[in-house]
Amino acid sequence: MSGVSPLRLLQLKKLQCAVFQTAFNPKSIRTGAKYLRARLRGPSMLNYYPELITIPMVQKEFPSFNVKDLQEEQRLEDVEDRKSRGKGTPRKARNKDESRRTKRRR
């Protein structure tokens, strides 16, 4: 009994791939198909981690509750403190003459 020729095996593999709708890759070149076939991880991760409930979300959902956001109050205090020391954000230019760019070009 002689073995089947490699050419016949290649033709058989090609036909098999056509029938079962798989990729025909006789030279075993990396195609990334393994990763494209893999299940997506994003939906599973979203289901794993619970949705965080924040104070602004509670304030928006239930405006009748008098809930204080201490972090937001502290942030606003810090902004006012910086403004009083002259370290606040620069004022926006209302027209082209107040712009810093035009002052630099002159």
Rank of each mutant, 00 (worst) to 15 (best):
T22C: 08
E98Q: 14
E98Y: 02
M45S: 06
R82V: 02
P43C: 05
K13S: 07
F65C: 13
E73N: 09
V67A: 02
R105Q: 11
K60V: 04
K27P: 01
K83W: 03
E72G: 02
R85A: 06
K96Y: 14
E61K: 14
K13V: 01
L52V: 08
L10R: 11
Y49T: 10
V19Y: 04
L36G: 11
P6E: 03
M1A: 14
P6M: 07
V58L: 15
F20G: 02
R75P: 01
N47P: 02
E98I: 06
M1V: 09
D81S: 07
M57N: 01
G42I: 06
L46N: 12
I29F: 03
N25E: 01
E73F: 05
R85S: 06
R94C: 07
L46A: 08
E77H: 13
V19G: 00
S64N: 12
K87Q: 11
T54K: 10
Q59S: 02
R30S: 11
V67K: 02
V79Y: 02
L46E: 13
K83C: 04
E72W: 03
L46F: 09
K68G: 00
P90I: 12
S28F: 13
N95S: 10
N47S: 13
Q11F: 12
R100C: 09
V4E: 12
R37K: 15
D81V: 10
R41S: 14
R37N: 11
V4D: 09
G3H: 07
L15I: 12
S5A: 14
V67P: 00
Q16I: 04
L36F: 14
Q74R: 12
E80S: 11
L52H: 02
R91A: 09
Q16L: 06
V67H: 02
A18I: 03
V58D: 00
R105T: 08
R82F: 12
V67D: 01
R41P: 08
R75S: 07
P50I: 00
N66G: 03
E80W: 05
K92D: 09
S2R: 04
S44R: 05
E51R: 13
R104V: 10
L7T: 05
R37H: 15
K34H: 04
Y35R: 13
V79P: 00
T89I: 06
D97G: 02
L52D: 06
T102Q: 14
R104Y: 14
